[in-house]
Each structure stands twice: as C-alpha cells, then as structure tokens.
Design a protein around this nucleic acid. Sequence first.
DNA 1: AAAAATACATAAATAACTTATGTATTTGAT
DNA 2: ATCAAATACATAAGTTATTTATGTATTTTT
Lengths: 112, 112
Amino acid sequence: MGTNQLYKGSLSTIILKLLGEKGRMYGYQITQEVKAISSGEYVITEGALYPMLHKLEAQGLLTVEIEMTGNRMRKYYSITNNGKKEVVDRMTEMESFIRNMQSLLNPKIDLA
Amino acid sequence: MGTNQLYKGSLSTIILKLLGEKGRMYGYQITQEVKAISSGEYVITEGALYPMLHKLEAQGLLTVEIEMTGNRMRKYYSITNNGKKEVVDRMTEMESFIRNMQSLLNPKIDLA
DNA sequence: AAAAATACATAAATAACTTATGTATTTGAT
DNA sequence: ATCAAATACATAAGTTATTTATGTATTTTT
C-alpha cells in the first residue's frame, strides 16, 4: 500500500467484496489478485492481511476451510450470509465516500 | 466522520485542497465547509482537526495568521508554495485511489 | 545450490484518528 | 434576562488499522 494513506480503512471492504465476487480464495491469492487489479499500487502486507482475515472470521463474515496442496497449507475463505449483507453496506459507504471526495476535490459550485 | 473508516487518511488532503481553492480559512470554518459539501457525512472532529493543522504548518505546507474578531480569536491558515506542490501529488494519489477502488469493487473483467 | 516465491503466523511500533476534557466568547431561544 | 447552543481554540488518553520485523516451512526458478 506504499506511502498512500488513502487505502487505510479499505482493506476489509476489499476482502469482503472480492470473496463475494470470486467465491473461495486463500490469503496469499487475495494479495496477488489485489496487486494485479491495482497495477501494483495496492500491496497488502501480510501483517495486515492475516489478522484481518482472522477478525472477519471471528465476526462471522467469513468461514475458513483448510486444505493441503502437497505439503503446503492453504486456508480458503468464503463469505457467509452475514458477510454478504455486510458487503451491501460497505458498497454504499464506498460509493458515498467516493462521491463526497469528488465534491470536495472537484468543486464546481461554491457552497460557502 | 462517523463510523466510516474510509475517511481515514483523507483529512490532510481535504484541508490542503480546500485551502488551495478558497484561500484563507480558519479551523472551525473548514469543519463547517466540509460538513456542508458532504451533506453532513464528513464531520471533522476538533481532536483531529487542530493537531492536523499544526502538523501541516510544522511541515511548511500551511502558514497561519492570528486575527481577533471582537474578543474571539481566529487562526487563519493559508497554503504555501510547498503546500501547492503537495496538493498536486495528493490529487494524483486520490485519483489513483478512486480508480483502483472502482476496478476492485466493480470488476468488469476477470484478471485472475 | 541458492534465491525467490509461496503460504501461513504473530508481536512491537507507528499513525490517524475518537473521545473526553478544558477555556472562553457570541448568538439565539424562552 | 437567562440559559443552551454555537463558535473557536486546545490538548491528553485511548483505540485501532496499519507497517515493520521476525519466524517457520515448502515449492519454484535461476
């Protein structure tokens, strides 16, 4: 996520939305997907990712299944019904945020 | 800023951009302006605002002039030349952030 | 054979905020 | 006239999302 402070607060929304769209994903896969979609601009650190996945699971928004690929562990996360409801709210919030930023940063009308 | 975590990290950008557009403003005025433009959705708390203004001043991005309106103090902030340069970078970051969020949250193409 | 990538994890430190508290003046409502 | 709300500044303590650092182990690439 580099030096760009703006991504702060968006991680859980991204994870939930991605799992809502793609179905099952494992942690490392999420980081790669987000990096690819954002052209390398959004690099999720492991220290942020894993605690967040555990938190969302604890909140009942995700469930996890452990699978072994050879000797390597993968923890596949899926979104729950509560998670799907949460995604709807998060999308509304994100749209509202983006709209507000556009008003604040591209002021066409002077409201003062 | 309510419970919406997304606004985290955007405060300094908002302040710098607003001062770049409007010229001089004082702290309280900034909170009212932002609240008005965002239809009450972005409420800047005083505990966030004043430390941030002091920080931006310490970084040489803002300058301050104290004025008295009757017996009441106002601290008018203006953007410096360095501040104007910073705004350009912040706008690029914000555009990039919004573009990335739109790709991540409205995935038209599957890049996996 | 060694380095890089894959795949998980946690702990300490940092930074941006919220909440709480403080002071004081001015405006608006009853 | 009085009291509440709004105006206007400030700082300190607590919270939380993150970064940075560290750890373990397997698999792939050079």
